[in-house]
Nucleic acid binder design. Structure first.
Lengths: 253, 253
DNA sequence: GATACACCTTTACGTCGCGTGAAGGTCAAT
DNA sequence: ATTGACCTTCACGCGACGTAAAGGTGTATC
């Protein structure tokens, strides 16, 4: 079965403009162009569009969708399983919102008390996800598409549980780093502990860890003002110190 | 408890830019501006922001949110009840998508057959809603904010069931209209039946029906080329015929 | 073959809801 | 006074299309 633009648009519930745009940006090319110059889509494109719409529904931007789906490691069957997991996550968030609105109703009726913080339960999760997407972009600019495609795919799998774990890792990293800085030796046991915590933190963002990449990222913390500022905010010199500790940890120095 | 921009932004999980933008477009004004020119938000604004975020979560554009919330008939407690209903609807749609992805997985594993149409179940609903929002805008341009605010509020309450009913009404309207046109008399029983069906169709979009508004809309069908084209697509002259039938129905002629 | 209508193409400008940054002011702790 | 966090306004840019113009194609009907 073949489809021209409007036929496929109607089938999928998108606009023909969307399909032309997707062709233009290379995310969904037609199977062929007929003698009149018309786009002709086939079964493969139907299935691909479905996947795109799932990613879109999950809030993934088109550039990232394209990266993921053009990666050699992309596997349609696995992607579907991931979509399912993400959709279940999304439903959890929606359940949070439903619970929130029900509590708010009870609160306005004077049945319960509700803090201002609770009033935004379920909305906040979104912001966290957006920040994580943004951070992924920073890494891309430094390390290229291949690494980041993988990390984005992994990123989308991060559960609430993982997120908590990451947050805790980060907190421990800061503590350990501050302590190690006081000791003053990037080779100390404490500093090496910090480097290890940093590695563990990274494994939540990187699908594959390598010492080279770790060392390179540490160098970036010192070379890039924004990262330096971030790490030095509590104690100037922290970015350099962490870079040194990581270089020792990874055997680059 | 009072909040400056960042405090409220953090509480709610939005950006400070968002809050400034909301002030700028008049959707969420601060309680006051302090002597330094800083925006200061209070409890009322916290609650209002929560409502805005619920509407936003439900896909309502900011202009419409503003209209709804500034309408004299706006009632925060009722809005919360509506949010709840809409969120439950949204969950139904999400369940459709989850069901879809599960079926697609089963299909790729060869366990079931799945049509291309089924592959887009759950995505299509969205497009319908978007079209309805757009249509609401058409009416606004002709009838002003007051009527449309109410119709938008009603629009958001439209359930799947209502939607089906509307679709069926529309189908019957077209049938009856075609039949009445053949008879050729806008005063005929059939034509009056069509006008009545049209009224019933309208009650899904208008919170309040009036004969004047109905007659005015019918005139608009003839005056505005786009509506005329829509009604004349199967039989030229249909827009005028329907206008006449409605004028008789509403006693305007 | 001509006509009408629905659909196709490309090009191009615009919209919405912010994100980002610049330039400069304010607050609070040291 | 200094520093760092936060505030303001202004302004440009972005992603994902929506809309329209100008012109070509397919199909049914006369």
């Amino acid at each position: 079965m073949e489809y021209t633009v409007q036929k496929l648009a109607q089938l999928a519930g998108v606009s023909s403009r969307t399909l032309r745009y997707y062709d233009e940006i290379g995310i969904l090319k037609p199977a062929r162009i007929n003698s009149s110059g018309y786009r002709i889509y086939g079964q493969k494109e139907v299935d691909r569009l479905q996947q795109i719409l799932f990613y879109r529904e999950l809030g993934v931007n088109l550039e990232t969708i394209k990266d993921i789906m053009t990666s050699p490691s992309y596997d349609g069957a696995n992607a579907l399983k991931e979509h399912r997991e993400q959709l279940l996550e999304k439903r959890k968030q929606l359940d949070l919102l439903i619970s929130n609105v029900e509590k708010t109703i009870a609160s306005t009726e004077g049945r319960i008390d509700m803090s201002n913080k609770e009033k935004f339960e379920g909305f906040k999760k979104k912001m966290v996800e957006e920040n994580e997407q943004k951070y992924g972009k920073e890494i891309r600019e430094k390390y290229g598409e291949e690494t980041v495609n993988k990390s984005n795919a992994k990123l989308l799998n991060m559960s609430e549980e993982d997120y908590k774990a990451v947050t805790q890792l980060e907190a421990r990293l800061w503590e350990t780093l501050a302590e190690a800085f006081k000791i003053g030796d990037p080779a100390s046991e404490t500093a090496q502990k910090a480097a290890d915590l940093h590695k563990q933190w990274l494994t939540y963002y990187w699908a594959e860890y390598s010492k080279e990449a770790h060392a390179g990222l540490a160098q970036m913390y010192v070379d890039d003002e924004r990262f330096t500022a971030y790490y030095d905010k509590e104690q100037p010199g922290t970015a350099e110190f962490l870079r040194d500790a990581i270089h020792i940890y990874t055997g680059q120095k």
